[in-house]
Amino acid sequence: MNPFEDQIYVIIFSTLFLGGLMSTFVVAMVFIHRQRQAQNRQKLDFIKSEHEKTLLNIENEIQHETLSHVGRELHDNIGQLLSLAKLNFGSIKPEKHAAGRELLSQIIQEVRSLSKSLNLDWVDEISLEDFISQELEKVKSTGFCETSINFETEFSNLKKDEKLVLIRVIQEILNNAIKHASPNHIRISANQLEGAQHIVIQDDGIGFDINQNSNGSGMFNLAKRMETIGGKFDIQSKPGNGTLIKLTLSS
């Protein structure tokens, strides 16, 4: 074999080797892509099922609370009104009968508003700002602490399930503040910055160490709930310095 032939074989071999190498590379890339695609699909399915689970839990919690509220209303409000109406209709005086009829109208109104709260249609009907205002008004009316609200953005683009999650997260944060923080003031504000909407819930209560496990697990659940609607949950707190929670939703 002469040296020219050797060199020719080297050229042929190099060409075939390079062609084979590139073919293998492209095929391997497609194969890896397929594998990652399957993994990605599994991940998405998992996130979807987590989202559905979270929604189901939230709906159960709201229904449970609603039933407790209905029970309380039936016993403390409607039951009392019915007893009063019975007394009025038992009297022989005509003015008592008129008062009884007024009471019956009031009872009908109360039952209507109670029946409305039994399903979740109210979530569609109420704006997030109105809901938070009502919640803060409830807190204020108990004389527990002062509250204030400042909304600079509207959350009209939220879907029902996203709104439901957000409502539950805010309720839970307010409950935590009332139960554990002993604040003098709770302030909720909302704004839009850099393509994202933010809700900031701030209290001037006793604060806590966010690294402590006892508080951390509750906060972890709230963060997970925010993740299911593509949002973020950030908390800043120190003992004696109050708590600031920021909920972020990309627009």
């Binding site: 492209v26 890339m29 497609v30 892509h33 990652r36 990605n40």
Partner: peptide, 17 residues
């Protein structure tokens, strides 16, 4: 390009062929 194809979500949702 191929690294992006196997790592980015935008490509993982598609059929490269």
């Amino acid at each position: 390009y191929f690294i992006g194809m196997i790592t980015r979500d935008q490509y993982l949702g598609r059929n490269p062929l």
